[in-house]
């Protein structure tokens, strides 16, 4: 699986409030979103993030994979990522 790079200009608060300075758009993410986002910013691979999500939240692998891929899909949709 590829890694996903978060837009370098994206400002992320500890509360999960996102601000994209180039467009002025704001977003909020929940605890799971914050968990995934933090690891994406650390440069983790998608599979590694899925594994840590399974460990952290005690969810089925298939659910964890779907959640991570859906979330990354939404980040792309809102132009918050640069896929490598």
């Amino acid at each position: 699986m590829s890694s996903t790079q978060i837009s370098t200009s994206l400002a992320v608060s500890e509360n999960g409030f996102l601000f994209l300075p180039t467009t002025g758009e704001t977003f909020t993410v929940n605890e799971t979103g914050r968990f995934i986002l933090r690891r994406l910013q650390e440069g983790r691979e998608q599979q590694e993030i899925i594994s840590s999500l399974i460990d952290e939240f005690d969810v089925e692998p298939v659910d964890a994979q779907r959640d991570v891929l859906d979330f990354i899909g939404q980040l792309r949709q809102y132009h918050l990522t640069d896929t490598q």
């Binding site: 200009s9 300075p21 180039t22 467009t23 002025g24 704001t26």
Partner: peptide
């Protein structure tokens, strides 16, 4: 505009 935010584009 009744509310706005500065941006950098």
């Amino acid at each position: 505009g009744w509310s706005g935010i500065t941006i950098n584009d």
